[in-house]
Design a protein around this nucleic acid. Structure first.
Length: 424
DNA sequence: TCTGGGGTCCTAGGACCC
DNA sequence: TCTGGGGTCCTAGGACCC
């Protein structure tokens, strides 16, 4: 029988901050979203203080200060690098590792000699010793059951972070103790509806009729049902899956009214999106630009709109894409509004080597200088850090830039910010 | 004053074709 | 009340994930 493992990092962003600040080991830690907006990660101590996920920072600031909570702005350079370290270790010891998110991976635990529990415990100790990041491991006959086992491992201290549902003497009890909304694939909407029908936990859900579930929750709900019964519907994704769309958007650090600021922000976000596009060796045929005012400000005039700009030739050439984003902005910009957010979406992605050419295309030589240029830009920025070279259209220090008042050093990716150790 | 960002999949319904 | 049948493509909206 096949066995899936779901391996995830505990309170990942908070654990990353702690990895380089051992004195925070027993202090509550929270990490904020971009612009220091909301709480998006909490250490266990912060959770028990009652700090709720997603709470706006300004609403819980007093509580955090009162309890001496260490507060961090998000530092994605650090989290991305520590994530890569964890994933490399998993790939070294496990077969079929599928990276599911920045802090989670599925792995194939079928037929491990000596038993899954021993292997899992050893793996957990290794990751923690080599990276400083604590992890939990759940094992089940399907991905959905592995997820469920992982939750159980975290919740019950006697599991010590590892739980194998396939070897559990009472799997039904585990399903009964899993609230319906905590099942992977069942979101708040469906959970509410199911609860009102008396389907309150994973065990009750599992015994529902297939047709009924499919009718109410489409085939995705049916997959969840069958997975809970131990029939795998979701297999390992082989290799990184190419994205179908790429979005780059941000809320502004300060409200924006000036057209020039929007031009800069559009250029900056397009630059980021184009970098990701080239990294997956693709080109895009459509640039979408969207902007919106602050929807939380009731009573203020609201406006949001989006424009789609088709490209004659699919490309990943940043200046071409910036021009397209700017023409989208020009179409939908309205004077007199205070904007909160804008963004760029690239769609119609195709592999760079298999792209469709337009009948009216000039010969390939016409863009022949684009590719080496972008390669050179990417290489320089990879070597010396993001934005070592950048396009003037992005501006230098626009007031629209993100607020990040509590960012920790990028210990592992920027030389100047390396951890210093002083002998005393 | 202050409320994140980036994705996927599924379905229904409209436009359009012969 | 009744208005052909069958198909494709696209988009918007809903639901979910981290």
């Amino acid at each position: 029988m096949s066995a899936f493992a779901l391996i995830d990092c505990n309170n990942f962003y908070a654990s990353c901050e702690r990895a380089f600040r051992p004195e925070l080991r027993h202090r509550p830690v929270v990490v904020l979203s971009n612009n220091d907006g909301c709480v998006i990660a909490r250490s266990n101590e912060a959770k028990s203080l009652g700090v709720v996920m997603g709470t706006p920072y300004f609403k819980c600031k007093t509580l955090l200060e009162h309890h001496g909570v260490a507060v961090f702005s998000s530092n994605y350079a650090l989290y991305g690098d520590l994530s890569a370290r964890v994933m490399r270790i998993l790939a070294r010891f496990c077969s079929n590792v599928e990276i599911y998110s920045i802090d989670e991976a599925f792995a194939d635990f079928s037929g491990i000699p000596g038993g899954t529990m021993t292997f899992a415990r050893r793996l957990k100790a290794t990751v923690e010793a080599w990276t400083g990041i604590p992890i939990s491991i759940g094992i089940g006959a399907t991905k959905t059951l592995a997820k469920l086992a992982n939750r159980f491992a975290k919740k019950h201290p006697r599991c010590q972070g590892v739980f194998d549902l396939t070897a559990s003497p009472a799997p039904d009890l585990v399903l009964k103790s899993t609230e319906i909304g905590d099942v992977w694939g069942i979101g708040p909407r469906h959970a509410k509806r199911l609860r009102s029908l008396g389907v309150s936990n994973a065990h009750v859900f599992r015994s529902q009729k297939r047709d009924w579930v499919k009718k109410k929750m489409t085939v995705t709900g049916l997959h969840t049902l069958l997975e809970l019964r131990g029939m795998p519907c979701l297999d390992f994704a082989t290799g990184p899956v190419a994205k179908k769309t790429i979005v780059s958007s941000r809320s502004f650090g300060h409200p924006v009214t000036r057209y020039e600021d929007l031009l800069e922000a559009a250029a900056q976000y397009t630059t980021r999106a184009a970098e990701r596009l080239r990294r997956q060796q693709a080109v895009t045929s459509h640039v979408h630009f969207f902007l919106q005012t602050n929807t939380f400000k009731r009573g203020h005039p609201q406006y949001s709109n989006a424009a789609q700009v088709p490209l004659l030739i699919a490309t990943s050439h940043t200046p071409t894409l910036i021009k397209a984003a700017h023409s989208g902005l020009k179409r939908i910009y309205r004077k007199g509004y205070t904007f909160k957010k804008c963004g760029v979406m690239l769609s119609g992605l195709e592999p760079v080597n298999g792209r469709w050419l337009n009948l009216l295309d000039l010969p390939p030589e016409s863009g022949s200088r684009h590719e080496p240029l972008m390669q050179a830009v990417d290489a320089m920025n990879a070597r010396w850090g993001q934005d070592t070279v950048k396009f003037a259209a992005s501006g230098l220090n626009g007031s629209w830039h993100m607020r990040r008042n509590h960012r920790s050093p990028r210990y592992t990716t920027v030389w100047k910010e390396l951890l210093e150790v002083h002998a005393s």
